[in-house]
């Protein structure tokens, strides 16, 4: 305990110096918010089924949600500027105003709510396993004997280590594709992360028929639309748009279009919980 305090205290000096310089260096080049009839939306560009860059533009469920919401807010498709929002930078992008909102498999958590606000949720995902078609994993207890794979530092990897299967052999890689190649060759038994992401991979052309979802609901991940902290006006508007999207059936259509081929047993649209 004491040692940790010492570490913390000694880091103060350096941190203060660093933050001070960082503030000075802020440039106003990334002014994307508000005005001019344009909207900048943060998305993932490398997750099949959710947000992926393809030769014909961006595709995926998050993209469809983002387009629908943007339309309800009064922006046409040509007014949207897409911006990649890597997981690590999402909070900073919102805080600096580089993006107006973020639709990028952004799970609503208490720690994140200290930095940003959310609208939604618009999707309920669970942590699940992707396994080879011929294999079977029935319950979470089987996990301790398996070789699992996940992405370095991700919430899913931490969940495995701390909650579900502390004794499991967990191989962490920098990206999902490394895990998929291991799963294909038999070096690992399962790839674990949110089922929505897994469904996107299972539905990819080169993997169709090879992998399936195990159907274990290991955790609840409520995907929300990230917005600047305290922007209740935008939050209300986005919530209304999401509600409309569910009510008029576009939500279900978007889910089916993007996750269809994976036999993904998705949850019905979640209730809006994030209110000013």
């Amino acid at each position: 305990m004491n040692l940790r305090k010492v570490t913390a205290a000694s880091a103060v000096a350096l941190t203060l110096a660093l933050t001070a310089t960082a503030c000075g260096g802020d440039s106003d080049s990334g002014s994307g918010s508000g005005g001019g009839g344009k909207v900048t939306i943060g998305i993932k560009v490398d997750q099949p089924g959710l947000g992926q860059e393809t030769p014909d533009g961006y595709k995926g469920f998050d993209i469809d949600v983002a387009k629908y919401v943007a339309k309800q807010l009064g922006y046409g498709e040509s007014d949207i500027t897409w911006k990649e929002a890597p997981s690590k930078e999402r909070e900073n992008l919102l805080r600096r105003g580089d993006v107006d909102f973020i639709v990028a498999t952004y799970s609503i958590t208490d720690q994140r709510k200290e930095k940003v606000s959310f609208a939604g949720p618009y999707f309920l995902a669970h942590q699940d396993l992707l396994i080879r078609t011929k294999d079977n994993i029935k319950s979470g207890d089987d996990l301790n004997k398996k070789k699992l794979c996940s992405v370095t530092g991700s919430t899913s990897a931490q969940n495995v280590k701390k909650k579900f299967a502390p004794d499991a052999q967990l191989q962490e890689y920098g990206g999902y594709s490394e895990c998929l190649s291991g799963l294909e060759s038999g070096a690992v038994d399962a790839l674990t992360t949110d089922d929505s992401i897994l469904a996107g991979y299972a539905a990819q052309q080169q993997y169709q028929g090879k992998f399936k979802l195990a159907g274990l609901n290991l955790s609840d991940e409520h995907y929300g639309i990230g917005i600047k902290k305290g922007d209740t006006e935008l939050q209300g508007k986005i919530n209304a748009a999401l509600k409309k999207m569910v009510d008029d059936g576009s939500w279900e259509k978007a889910v089916k279009a993007n996750f269809g081929p994976a036999n993904y047993d998705f949850e019905p649209a979640p209730q809006i919980t994030e209110q000013g």
Binding site: S10, A11, L14, T15, L18, T19, A22, S87, K88, E89, E91, N92, T109, Q111, R112, E114, K115, V116, T152, G153, S154, T155, A157, Q158, E172
Partner: peptide, 22 residues
């Protein structure tokens, strides 16, 4: 690896990076 775990959980990119740089 611990740094990426902490950034994932805590949403404190700058502070955490500074601690690890230190």
């Amino acid at each position: 690896l611990l740094m990426s775990e902490m950034i994932e959980n805590e949403a404190e990119l700058l502070l955490i990076s500074a601690i690890f740089a230190f």
